[in-house]
Design a protein around this nucleic acid. Structure first.
Length: 272
DNA sequence: ACCACAACCTGGCCGC
DNA sequence: TGCGGCCAGGTTGTGG
């Protein structure tokens, strides 16, 4: 489900609810949720520690613990996090609850069970291989060009590769390619300098727009506030096959790239 | 090293 | 109503 704008929205909404509070009890209802270490070590490692901060790297949420260590969450397709009173009912597909000293509990819910928890001393054990943050000041078109150079895979596949740039998924990759007027099946290494520059700017623009809208709620995504994201109203091509291109009126096409549905305008994004 | 694809899960929707 | 097939915002492992 969530891409960078959704994960960042979740982070911003969670911070005022939980940061500074101590964890008093951890309940895991589906053990494979814990990627590492083992279940018992994970539970004992969280209990008694204080939530010092929540950061984001790509699509990962990093919860800094005091004293020491990081609880890292990846929501994959359908993971949801919200905070409830400790005696509130538990929704279906809830796989963990983390009880805080103030009587509230953090609920983790995940219909498809793809999401994972990690507890590590060194966060780079989990996020160390990610590419640059696309909203960081120092992310440049030159960096993107360098990571595309020589690559023969289709540019859409490369945008989904988190080592090229961290945080894009299927929605925002398609939206960025449309804004940049780049065909999704174009070989990554064949983009000329101007096209890479447009793509860099488009990625930035799309992520900022989506962040302002608090992300996209296509189906299961809901941030902790349970106020749906709004970007799904603004998307230009994603899941709009057969509808007119907002720029030229040509009907949006759908194809399959990297195993994922891919939407583009055949007129505005000609093959190269 | 690079690339494409199956696998991991569950549920919704569509056509027969 | 029921069943098969396809679809879904992500990542990892495998085989070519």
């Amino acid at each position: 489900m969530p891409e960078l704008p959704e994960v960042e929205t979740i982070r911003r909404e969670l911070i005022p609810l939980v940061v500074g509070k101590r964890i008093v009890r951890v309940e895991i209802y589906w053990s494979r949720l814990i990627d590492r270490p083992d279940l018992d070590t994970f539970v004992r490692g969280l209990e008694g520690r204080r939530l010092a901060d929540i950061r984001r790297r790509g699509k990962y949420l990093i919860w800094d613990l005091d004293p020491g260590g990081h609880w890292i969450i990846h929501l994959r397709m359908t993971g949801q996090i919200y905070v409830r009173p400790g005696n509130a009912p538990v929704d279906p597909h809830t796989h963990a609850r983390v009880f805080l000293e103030d009587g509230q509990a953090i609920h983790y819910r995940d219909q498809r069970k793809f999401g994972r928890f990690y507890l590590v001393e060194d966060e780079n054990d989990v996020v160390g291989n990610l590419g640059p943050e696309p909203l960081a000041e120092n992310w440049t078109a030159e960096d993107l060009a360098a990571r595309l150079r020589g690559r023969r895979a289709r540019v859409k596949s490369l945008l989904l590769d988190q080592r090229v740039v961290a945080g894009l998924g299927n929605i925002y990759a398609d939206e960025a390619l449309f804004l940049a007027r780049v065909h999704p099946a174009c070989e990554g290494g064949r983009l000329d300098e101007a096209a890479v520059r447009r793509l860099h700017a488009a990625i930035h623009q799309v992520l900022i727009e989506a962040l302002d809208a608090r992300g996209s709620t296509m189906s299961t995504y809901l941030p902790p506030s349970e106020r749906k994201g709004g970007y799904q109203q603004q998307r230009r091509v994603y899941r709009r096959a057969g509808m007119p291109c907002p720029r030229c009126g040509t009907l949006i096409a759908r194809t399959k790239i990297a195993g994922r549905s891919t939407y583009f305008c055949p007129q505005c994004q000609p093959p190269t």
